[in-house]
């Protein structure tokens, strides 16, 4: 059986916001080390990998591998019934076909209980190779969100060029073109806004902006985002969750023949 408690329902609500536009239904794979999700979008261009480590919950109990097949639209409906500050407990039995969700107000004077019907989902699990990326850029997640929003005014595609000087995002479309360059920050007072670049080799990649805009739904989860890139392979866009795990998105590049 599974029993996992989070001090704030807001976290699960935000996680759902971060994936529900990419994925309609997926398995939440629970085991004694935590809860993991791996799912592709319907066009098989992007992949989401989510990890919530057991030690981020208090308490956490799961004594065997338990795949919980969840329709995210349905889960979203139930999570709308939770207050952001409610204590959230999820429970599932080994042979059950429902997920129990309990929302408890902080002073425990209101307890609401919901059951979400589970489904059998036959999902293929992809092997993600361990990659040494040529460029790893850590930057403000809010800045990344703004750049994606701004450049989507210009084009459906975005070109990312990373050199040791900085990272340049550019777009070119019918109205004209535009670009935003972030220089690697030297000594900055505000760590959250710094841009840092680890570069083995310059990279230049083209991506669909639509997917980046889905990924930036994770912005409330972390003040930082890490973009890991090598030429001609999928970009890894990672939001780390404090003391809990991560949301990772992989997006296949656009490549000419």
């Amino acid at each position: 059986m599974l029993e996992a408690r989070l001090p704030q329902a807001k976290l699960l609500k935000s996680l759902l916001e971060a994936i529900k536009e990419l994925v309609v239904e997926c398995n939440f794979d629970c085991n004694d080390s935590g809860i993991a999700v791996q799912a592709m979008d319907s066009s098989h261009v992007a992949l989401v990998a989510l990890l919530l480590r057991a030690d981020g919950f208090d308490p956490y109990r799961c004594d065997r591998n338990l795949p919980l097949g969840i329709n995210l639209t349905s889960l979203n409906k139930i999570l709308k019934c939770a207050g952001n500050e409610d204590i959230l407990t999820i429970k599932a039995s080994d042979d059950g076909d429902v997920l129990n969700l309990v929302f408890e107000s902080k002073d425990s004077d209101r307890i609401s209980e919901y059951e979400l019907k589970l489904m059998d989902i036959d999902s293929e699990h992809l092997g993600i190779p361990d990659t040494q990326y040529d460029a790893v850029v850590s930057m403000s997640s809010g800045e990344f969100q703004r750049i994606c929003r701004d450049l989507s005014q210009i084009s459906d595609s975005i070109v990312i060029d990373v050199t040791k000087e900085g990272i340049k995002f550019s777009a070119s479309g019918e109205v004209g073109n535009g670009s935003v360059t972030l220089k690697q920050s030297g000594s900055v007072d505000r760590e959250d806004e710094a841009t840092t670049i680890e570069l083995q080799q310059a990279v230049s990649l083209t991506f669909s902006l639509k997917y980046f805009q889905y990924f930036t739904k994770a912005t409330p989860l972390s003040s930082r985002v890490v973009l890991s890139m090598s030429n001609d392979v999928p970009i890894l866009v990672e939001y780390k969750l404090d003391n809990l795990g991560y949301v990772r998105y992989y997006l296949a590049p656009k490549i000419g023949d």
Binding site: M40, S43, H44, V45, A46, L47, L126, G127, I128, P129, D156, S157, T206, S208, V233, P234, Y250, L251, A252, P253, K254, I255, G256, D257
Partner: peptide, 12 residues
Amino acid sequence: PPPQRSITSFFK
């Protein structure tokens, strides 16, 4: 723009 690749052509 160049054609969009599938993620499954990179991850098996």
